[in-house]
Design a protein around this nucleic acid. Structure first.
Lengths: 247, 247
DNA sequence: CGCGGGGTTGATTGGATTCAATAGGCGTGG
DNA sequence: CCACGCCTATTGAATCCAATCAACCCCGCG
């Protein structure tokens, strides 16, 4: 099973806008692969404006707040563009680092610009990805602002399932790799490590999930979604006009 | 003092990119003014893709979560573009409504597109505004995720000061209009009304602020900033390349 | 004058944190 | 090969910040 998986970026963008072989190839060619990055290594430290894409592994975006407090402001899965600042000509927000061994691809900003000019669909797909990224951010605010611990964790596990599924990283129906420590989960969800631990236990006891070796299996999808108020709609790309809306 | 203030949108965008008289006028001309909107009226309910700008008053963006819970995901001050979805061709995230009597201007999306093509600086400024909008969102995550109640409120009051100052809505050094109820503040900061009340009292007792008639005065800016871990840098527009960065 | 919304206060409750200690897994080095 | 150390997960106890519940005050308004 050492097969070279399809580029997750292609899967991601292809999920937004159907792309022809020519476009896929052009996109693939533009990506510069770098050597694998070790866990807990900072990405994007350099001032380059390249478009960075997580190719494999898991990464996060975070911000520091004096006295050692840290907030993880976003989790990044393969196929994710780390930061969309290049769209507005601004630098990345906060810091980025890997949470496990990962690969990061880069598209030099000039290549990217040329690519988008030649292939409007690619541009369109990137814009959709950016919109979904923003929607994920909104959901994070909802979680931190008014969801209980149980809801936050349940919601996160559902979200990860859908995001990983979109890039073909879910195996056997509902199992996916999620190499994150409980402490990191806490930093992402605004909860203490201890409470994350107890909350995960509750979800396991209820039969919603099982966890083994950094792999999460959702045993009761409906139950977990209900527990976390999860509605996958925000992960889809909704365009006004292209899809007639009920109202 | 009934003078027609300078269009806050011009002040906002002009703060990002210096614009000539021609550009300012073109921008002004593009904005369609609507009749004043009453408090607690929903904006953007229609499916239009117009670029909406708050011209006066105060508004918020919010999302609902079953069982009546509501999270205010953003506060909007004059000069703010309500939603940047038009940049990605997607619809607005969540709902928008006024918090007090307000005016909303609209730029039909076609006019906007034409405007940006003819005046690249306007496009550039809008992109900067979009980036700052995103940065404000990140700070919100920080607040909800790891700031204490006191820090959240202090931070918010500092943020509003800077945002309103940017559009000329601060009077007498540090006084600004902030017609928001404590309940709404709580919904924005993920705190209960009662706790907001007590936190505001603490800030007043410490001599950081005074409040009267919906007007906030910051009496001790340094103290309030320190209390809220507030650093105004994220409200500035930082562009890679245009400004040399220390590192 | 009664009503309603917003602000204030006190008492109580509770979800989550913090502190503290133990257990398990894994890599390194003796 | 085992010992040691480190990191992560787990558990229990105590504490605390903020929520909830419940009045009450104040004021503008019909």
């Amino acid at each position: 099973m050492e097969k070279d998986r399809v580029d997750p970026l292609l899967l991601r963008l292809g999920g937004y806008v159907a792309m022809g072989a020519e476009e896929s190839e052009a996109l693939s060619r533009a990506v510069r692969r770098s050597p694998a990055i070790q866990p807990y290594e900072e990405i994007l430290g350099d001032g380059s404006r390249d478009v960075c894409v997580l190719q494999s592994g898991l990464a996060c975006q975070f911000k520091l707040l004096g006295n050692g407090r840290r907030q993880i402001t976003g989790l990044l899965v393969p196929g994710d563009i780390l930061d969309f600042g290049f769209l507005t000509g601004t630098g990345p927000q906060g810091h980025f680092m890997t949470l496990c061994r990962s690969d990061v691809g880069r598209i030099p900003i000039q290549s990217f610009t040329a690519l988008c000019e030649q292939h409007p669909r690619i541009m369109q797909a990137v814009l959709r990805a950016s919109a979904v990224h923003a929607a994920i951010g909104q959901e994070r605010v909802l979680s931190l602002g008014l969801r209980t611990a149980l809801e936050r964790v349940a919601h996160l596990l559902c979200e990860m399932y859908h995001r990983l599924d979109a890039v073909g990283l879910v195996s056997g129906r509902t199992t996916y790799d999620f190499r994150i420590t409980q402490a990191e989960m806490g930093e992402a969800l605004g909860l203490s490590t201890v409470h994350i631990n107890r909350t995960l236990q509750a979800l396991r006891r209820s039969g919603y999930i099982t966890m083994r070796n950094g792999k999460v299996t959702i045993e009761n999808m409906d139950g977990l979604c209900a527990e976390g108020n999860f509605d996958p709609a925000y992960l889809a790309n909704i365009t006004i006009g292209s899809q007639a809306r009920p109202n």
